[in-house]
Structure formats: structure tokens, C-alpha cells
Amino acid sequence: MPSNMEIRRISATLSPSTGVRETPKVAKLIDTTTCIGCKACEVACQEWNDLQSEETQQFGTYQTLPDLTPNFWNLIRFNEHEEDGQFAWLMRKDQCMHCEDPGCLKACPAPGAIVQYNNGIVDFNQANCIGCGYCISGCPFDVPRLNAKSGKVYKCTLCSDRVSVGLEPACIKACPTGCLQFGTKGNLLDIAEKRVGQLKAQGFKNAIVYDPKGVGGTNVITILAYGDRPELYGGLPKDPKVPAYLGLMKVVLKPLGNLLMLLSVVGAFAHFMRFGKREDHE
């Protein structure tokens, strides 16, 4: 395994993960302000990942499909926005955000079905996936999709197969405007902050780099001109968090439940040692 693909976290696994090397975090930068909505990234994603093409639908927008599907991992969401007499097209690349603290991985009950590499990529291993859909509920961005045919869940891999051999993801390679960039997260954050500075100078005073802290930050970061209202961009959550029920189940319920069930067995055995078998009167 290449050193940048060492595993940092594994779903439903009690043993420590394998990663010991210090490797940089990779990231994808999406600049929604320079996206022209050409959809080259959508096509590149479909092609590189050999995904079946989805039938497009006309629903009153240039958006290819209403939503992500198990065969469509990269969707440019088109939203029309009017403010102060100005019309703007807000286009946002919807895909797996590759969270630092992935809710999907936390929710997953199948050992090894979801892994997080040292470089920050969160990847599904369909061979280990049991199709329960827990990750779908655990994801704060509503990204994973269950394929009815295989019964497994799919999403953007950040082209982990390409990244592992030193190539950028397919969508990055296809982007004609450079609104998509790939690199180490530190570098991209610098670039993004510079761009946000430009936007602010242009009057977009709420411009931000979307790198939400509620999920520990993401390895797909997005520049938003209207950073105070990320919902405008096809429902990007303002303050996404790893759902609290996952912590309740993992930290409280599982250890407590195991302890209580164990104590019940011990209690029953203790009762038997003290009182034995009840005999009936004659």
C-alpha cells in the first residue's frame, strides 16, 4: 500500500488502525465563484469511475439530475439567486466532503466497510459493506447512496485509486477554469483565503472558505461568496455536525449495554449459587 494511503480509521473495528507514517492531508478546493457550470467534472467522474450513465431529467434547471445517485457521485447544483437587484447563478459541486470526523464511518457497523486514509480520504469498501444504510443517516451532508442492484452504498472516492499513484482526481483534471484545485490541505487553505480576500474586496463581505468545524473540517473545501447563507448553494448545511446519536450509541449505550448484559449473567449465576434450584412442596 502506498504510504499516502495508510489507514487512519476503520469502521466497526476495535483494534488500532495501521497508519503510523506522517503524511500530508490532501484536499480538493471548489471555488464556486469561478465555476461556469460546464459539468466537465460530472462527465470526468462518470468516465473515470466507469459509472453507468443516468438518464438526465428536465425539471426546470440546467442541473443534470435532481440529486446524487448511486451511479452519480458528483453533481453541480444550480441555484438562481437574486439580491440587491443583482442576479447570480450559484453553482456548487455536491459530492462527498471527506470529513475529518466522518459520521458515516462512525455509524457503520460493518468492519472495514468504511476507511479513512492518513491523507484524509474517506473511502467505502463495497466488499465489506452490508447494505444497512446506517452511513446514509450518519452523513451530515446526505451523500451516500444505496444501489438497489448491488445492495451496497456508493459515493465519491476522491479518486483514491488515482491519488494513490500521485494523480489528481478526475474532476480536477477536467475542470477548464481552474475552479477545482487539488493539493495539500494547508496549501489550498492559503489559496482559498487569498481568494476570499479578493471577494471581500469586491463587495462579497460574507465570503468564506467552507470548512465546517462541526465535522472536524473537511478535505473538500468550498469557497462561498455568500458564506453567511450556505443553504443557498443547494442546501449546504450552515453548521453540519456529526449527529449526536452516534456518540450516544458508541460512547454510552454500547459499553453500558455490554456491562448490563454481562452483569445479568453474573447476577443469575450468583442467584443460582446462593439458592440453587427451587423445589416444590409435597
Binding site: Y134, S137, A244, Y245, L253, S264, V265
Partner: peptide, 19 residues
């Protein structure tokens, strides 16, 4: 969000009961 932990709590209670 409600169903996952509820299901788990009931699983634990049923586990104790069945023992």
C-alpha cells in the same frame, strides 16, 4: 436519529430480560 438509539436501548433491555 431517534430510532437508532431507541432500537439499541430496547435491544439491551430485551437482552437482559431474555437472560
Amino acid at each position: 436519529y431517534l430510532s437508532y438509539p431507541l432500537h439499541e436501548i430496547l435491544f439491551i433491555l430485551f437482552g437482559i430480560a431474555i437472560i
